[in-house]
């Protein structure tokens, strides 16, 4: 069982960590080093989404409240409000939507500021997550990378990680330095979310709907080339990290929570073989569990 998953990762040139369970029978699992705590990259937006919805349930946040984000104060990034030129006024729930569907860094950091690191940590603990830590958002992550690389801006710092001719600065991929979780904790979060154990019915529905609307189909979803299979996920990409955690639902309703976390040997920004390997590993896991 492990040999197949290991073979997929070896062939793609990545170190991989994985956990997959059937939502109906969570005792059966496919796993590879599932308890190792790995830096999350943008997958931290998944626990943040769950934490935000919990605060809505508690009445501590109003999902319709509007905030205005100025361009100068927004975190850089390729998608969503990060890419906009002008001030944006947006509701909290739309921040969450943009954060989760297009991995919008600006929305995520604004939402993290509102939720707060301490409040989020307490919520994640109450969810039963013992190996999940949201220690900082994307802006702080990029600042740390800039410090470690000595680069002038975030793009130059990321270019250092992408350069196959250079050595990665020490500590860039240390789980202890940033937001991190184990693959097993991610599937636990997904399982409890899907079972409606953590949030009200309406917030549970919001999380599921939002995650089904994620636009990235090149990782988990690439392993299931059939529209009858539904994939709700959240990807993470930072330097050589390539991740996705999500729920795959087969026609007929059988559903599987899967977290595939990888660190590629190559640094290139675009690594289609690694993306495909994440889908392949997910596919193998589902076939073993179904």
């Amino acid at each position: 069982m492990n040999a197949r998953i290991r073979g997929i990762f070896e062939d793609a040139g990545v170190r991989g960590w994985m956990h997959a369970i059937s939502l109906e029978d969570p005792q059966a699992s496919v796993e590879l080093d599932a308890d190792v705590v790995v830096p999350l990259a943008s997958v931290y937006k998944l626990p943040l989404l769950a934490g935000f919805c919990r605060l809505v349930d508690l009445g501590e946040l109003d999902p319709r409240e509007r905030v205005t984000l100025e361009p100068s104060a927004r975190t850089a990034g390729p998608t969503g409000l990060s890419a906009f030129a002008d001030p944006v006024t947006v509701s909290l729930r739309d921040l969450a939507l943009s954060m989760a569907t297009v991995s919008d860094n600006a929305s995520a950091d604004a939402l993290l500021d509102i939720v707060g690191l301490r409040r989020l940590a307490e919520i994640l603990e109450s969810f039963g997550l013992r190996r999940t830590w949201v220690r900082r958002g994307t802006a702080a992550n990029l600042r740390d990378l800039q410090r470690r690389t000595g680069a002038d801006d975030a793009d130059a710092a990321l270019a250092v990680l992408a350069d196959n001719d250079r050595t990665d600065p020490v500590g860039v991929y240390e789980a202890a330095n940033g937001s991190a979780a184990s693959a097993r904790d991610l599937t636990l979060l997904l399982r409890r979310l899907w079972a409606g154990e953590l949030l009200s019915a309406s917030q549970t529905e919001f999380v599921k709907t939002t995650m089904h609307r994620q636009i990235f189909l090149h990782r988990l979803a690439s392993g299931f080339p059939h529209d009858g299979v539904r994939v709700a996920g959240k990807t993470g990409t930072f330097g050589a990290l390539r991740h996705e955690a999500g729920v795959v639902t087969l026609p007929g309703g059988a559903a599987f929570a899967i977290a595939v976390l990888t660190l590629a040997a190559r640094g290139d920004f675009r690594q289609p073989r690694v993306d495909a390997a994440i889908g392949e590993a997910a596919r193998v896991a589902v076939d073993l569990l179904r």
Binding site: F9, E10, V14, D165, T167, A265, R266
Partner: peptide
Amino acid sequence: LHPAVLDGLEAGPVSL
């Protein structure tokens, strides 16, 4: 050879 999956090993700088 670099790049290779090193999995916890220490590694020196890349020589070209």
